[in-house]
Design a protein around this nucleic acid. Structure first.
Length: 892
DNA sequence: CACTCCCGCCAATTA
DNA sequence: TAATTGGCGGGAGTG
């Protein structure tokens, strides 16, 4: 009888469930099956039926450890299956009825519930996609395993895959460091490049290869020869590889994971069938490919695929081929990485220019970003890169079995890098200043103050990915633009991505008279230079003021510098992107008083192309250019921005503004000046668009009064998740930042999450598309004007401040809005604001996001010591300076 | 039956 | 030597 019952009760699966239950209620088992007495009683284990179960029991009997584990599992389980909660009860009940079966089912975790994918999701849920660079999250395997209620073995499966993508790194035994997705884009880019080398043609050419085998063989040959798989693979684990790596590691799940991802990145169709992948990945034994091996490989691929699916990088699909339908996976992660090699290369060049020290820093920085020794590989990939040496060094350094340590160092590295950048920027800034001055003089003395926005590459990642190219071009473009603001602007607008268009739409509202700067969004922007307040009649002075403020806000720019020139130059993005943003936010918060105005002179508009230039108004733009050129390398990395930057709106706006102001034939500068002069308060905005596709954010800065020149450094850095930020410098103090939702377009290669800022995290999470706009206002005020303007009157120039919801602004300073509202266009933003600032944020924002958003920003801003410091100091020293100081101290 | 993929043994590595 | 990692493949669950 007993037997009979049981089967019913706990048909097959029960086993696992039972353990759980058992754990809870060991006593229960017996109860449950009073009938079955024996087995149950004897063993706590539930699994009796399956052979394994029996085995297990035996084992457990034999080893206490096992039992313990089981217990633990059980204990944990509850977490997993909250649903099961009733299990015990049900089980008991079950005893009686058949109904039990159902319950069992309910109870039973069911295989799916235990799937690696689900487990991975739980795992991922525990960590932020874009953790603040500052905070290191360590993962304890034991802890996680227990929390998730699974054996450690499963955690290894997850962690190994995550590690292959550099989302985590091993720090020590049982200890992993969570990096989040900041580097993901870079990693993917690398993999893509590597994949192209290895699998290149194959994949592309043969999307379909049905004849796996046949082709397979060929491929193998090809692949193998091209690059040693190892190397590529190693890339995850660098050089050291050799020794340890060999036997065991070669097959490692990590490597397989990377290769698997490579296949997707290389594949045109972005769809890879398991069998093909398995064949390709078997390479080694190419010919031998025995069935068993194949099977094993496929199993492993499932494991990997589950994790990747959890990461939102791929999804399961079915491909129907001649044979029939085959399981396959489609890449749904970030699309192409535009720059790819080019970017890298471009980047490197930029880096070259940097001072040796800096360069070194950069290299390190990169490494750190990468998180590991991959550099070696990188080097290999990009032979072109000048930095190889440094990288190698770096890579070599960490011989440690694992790279983790490197990772640890990464943060340091990053800091150093940041510092270096700042320095560089400063230098450049100076240069820039010069140029600016010149320009200004030429154009109009009026030119707004330079205020520079620098995107700061927050993370090494950024560095890695640098999009220098864009930057340069941009810069140049900018220059011309100066001269021809209008035209430029128009062009810029065109160039600008869709987003730009959006902005454009909004523009009118936004900037009737105000000029805009569009930047490609880099993750971070630093504002350098003082902002000028329009109020301040004089640009310069104002600029100085602004600069201070701005500087504070961004911290990047030293106060002095901040002043027009300096400010311009300051562009160096010392701080990582994250920081910057936060800084900005902080600024806003802290300095709310001060209006942070970005002045985007016309020049910005011109700069359209050169996104980088964008920031600076005329002058600033110039700076940028100069800077970029000169410095190019380092700071520029942002180059990405350059391109991304689309003057679009700005231009248009500028134009408009210009139009308004009849005078200026001249470029944006004029606008600036005019605006400044004419419209003391008219807000000027800087709009930074993120590279298309990515989550980068755009920032809009308006500086009504203050026409400080703004320099934007475009960071390549990964864009923030936030699409756009508008910051109006209200007349004064407050600057609100509004982030418009980025487009989802994943265009840019930019990594999704590149953005370090926490804020990004939330958004980015989804992937690129995060549309959520972020609204940041320091104090509350955003420029009212702005808000209204966009939607309605762009024209209204001067509303000073929008009132952001005080709460938001103050507290957070930044608020996210759902994209809907803000979504793309500044206009929307404006609208939002109008609604009154207050409401806006809240509504749009999703709770979660809000939190996250706030946190990040807040964390950034608030938390950030330096920022705070700034706040206090702010005026005295620019944020930049502070940063420098800080950085200098620390690094030094 | 094919597809998935969980489970956990046990060897390789590491501490 | 003990503990940690992680390759590997049996075989269970699912459709």
């Amino acid at each position: 009888e007993n037997i009979f019952d049981r089967p019913r009760m706990a048909p097959k699966t029960p086993i696992k469930n039972e353990p759980i239950d058992l754990s809870k209620q060991k006593g229960c088992t017996p109860e449950r099956n009073p009938i079955t007495p024996v087995k149950i009683i004897d063993r706590p284990q539930p699994d009796p039926w399956t052979p394994t179960a029996n085995l297990k029991i035996l084992v457990s009997a034999a080893s206490p450890d096992m039992r313990d584990r089981e217990k633990k599992k059980e204990l944990f389980r509850p977490i997993e299956n909250s649903e099961q909660s009733d299990t015990p009860d049900s089980s008991q009940y079950d005893i009686v009825d058949d109904s039990t079966v159902d319950e069992f089912e309910k109870q039973r975790p069911s295989r799916k519930q235990k799937s690696l994918g689900l487990l991975c999701q739980k795992f991922l849920a525990r960590y932020p996609n874009y953790p603040l660079s500052t905070e290191k999250t360590t993962i304890s395997l034991d802890e996680v395993a227990s929390i998730l209620g699974v054996e450690r073995r499963r955690i290894y499966d997850i962690v190994n895959v995550l590690e292959s993508l550099h989302l985590v790194s091993r720090v020590a035994k049982n200890q992993y460091c969570w990096h989040g997705r900041h580097n993901l884009s870079q990693t993917l880019k690398m993999l893509q490049e590597a994949g192209e080398l290895q699998y290149g043609e194959l994949m592309t050419s043969q999307h379909k290869e049905q004849d796996l085998e046949y082709k397979f063989g060929e491929r193998k040959k090809e692949t193998i020869p091209d690059s040693q798989d190892r190397p590529l693979l190693d890339f995850s684990e660098p050089d050291c590889t050799s020794a340890s790596a060999n036997s065991r590691k070669d097959k490692s799940l990590r490597i397989m994971s990377q290769k698997f991802v490579m296949l997707f990145l290389v594949s045109k169709t972005k769809i890879v069938t398991l069998d093909i992948a398995a064949k390709i990945l078997i390479e080694e034994t190419q010919d031998t490919v025995d069935h068993s091996k194949f099977k094993t490989k496929v199993r492993r691929l499932y494991d990997i695929a589950n994790v990747l699916t959890s990461l939102g990088l791929i999804k399961k699909v079915h491909v129907t081929e001649e044979r029939g339908r085959k399981p396959a996976f489609k890449w749904i992660g970030p699309g192409e990485f535009p720059g790819k090699t080019d970017k890298l290369r471009g980047h490197s060049p930029t880096s070259d220019p940097l001072p040796g020290a800096q360069r070194g820093a950069c290299a390190q920085y990169q490494t750190s970003a990468t998180g590991k020794q991959r550099f070696t590989r990188h080097a290999s990939f990009n032979s072109a890169q000048p930095c190889e040496a440094t990288r190698r060094k770096v890579s070599s350094e960490p011989n440690s079995p694992r790279q983790e340590r490197q990772d640890e160092n990464c943060s340091k590295m990053i800091n150093l890098a940041a510092v270096c950048r700042q320095k560089i920027e400063e230098d450049t800034g100076n240069k820039a200043c010069d140029t600016e001055t010149i320009l200004n003089s030429a154009k109009n003395s009026n030119i707004t103050l330079p205020f520079s926005l620098l995107p700061v590459p927050g993370d090494s990642d950024f560095c890695v990915n640098p999009l220098p190219q864009a930057v340069f071009p941009v810069v140049q473009a900018d220059v011309p633009s100066f001269s021809l603001p209008t035209g430029i602007s128009s062009q810029a607008s065109h160039t600008s991505t869709p987003a730009a268009s959006k902005t454009e739409n909004g523009k009118p509202t936004l900037v009737p008279s105000q000029p805009f700067l569009c930047f490609p969004s880099s993750s971070l922007f630093m504002l350098c230079g003082g902002l000028q307040e329009n109020n301040l009649s004089e640009p310069l002075p104002t600029a100085g003021d602004l600069g201070k403020r701005s500087a504070q806000a961004q911290a990047a720019v030293p106060p002095a510098v901040c002043q027009k020139r300096s400010s311009c130059k300051c562009s160096s993005p010392s701080a990582p992107v994250d920081d910057e943003e936060p800084a900005a936010k902080k600024q806003t918060l802290e300095h709310s008083d001060l209006p942070l105005s970005l002045v985007v002179p016309k020049s910005p508009s011109e700069s359209p192309k050169a996104e980088s230039s964008p920031g600076s108004g005329c002058s600033s733009a110039v700076h940028l250019e100069t800077n970029n050129h000169d410095h190019a390398g380092p700071a520029v990395p942002e180059a990405a921005n350059k391109e991304s930057i689309k003057p679009l709106d700005c231009q248009e706006q500028e134009k408009q503004s210009q139009n308004k102001d009849p005078d200026e034939p001249s470029p944006g500068n004029e606008h600036m000046s005019k605006e400044n002069a004419n419209q003391p308060f008219q807000p000027q905005y800087l709009y930074v668009q993120p590279p298309p596709g990515l989550s980068s954010f755009n920032f809009l800065f308006s500086a009504n009064q203050a026409p400080g020149a703004i320099n934007l450094a475009a960071n390549q850095l990964p864009s923030l998740s936030v699409p756009c930020v508008m910051v109006p410098s209200a007349a004064l103090a407050s600057f609100p930042l509004v982030c418009s939702p980025s487009f989802s377009s994943p265009l840019s290669p930019v990594p999704d999450g590149s953005f370090s800022a926490a804020a990004a995290t939330n958004f980015s999470m989804s992937s690129l598309a995060s549309t959520t706009p972020v609204f940041i206002s320091t104090t509350a005020v955003v420029t009212p004007k702005v808000s209204p303007a966009p939607s309605v009157d762009s024209q209204q120039p001067a509303h000073p401040a929008l009132h952001l919801s005080p709460v938001l602004t103050r507290s957070c300073s930044a608020v996210q809005l759902d994209s809907p509202v803000c979504m793309g266009h500044p206009v929307t933003l404006l609208k939002l604001q109008q609604p009154s600032s207050a409401p806006l944020t809240p509504k749009s924002i999703r709770p979660a996001h809000h939190e996250a958003f706030f946190k990040t920003p807040g964390s950034l801003g608030d938390p950030v010591a330096w920022k705070k410091n700034e706040g206090s100091q702010t005026r005295n020293a620019s944020s930049v300076q502070r940063r420098l100081e800080i950085s200098s101290t620390s690094p030094d």
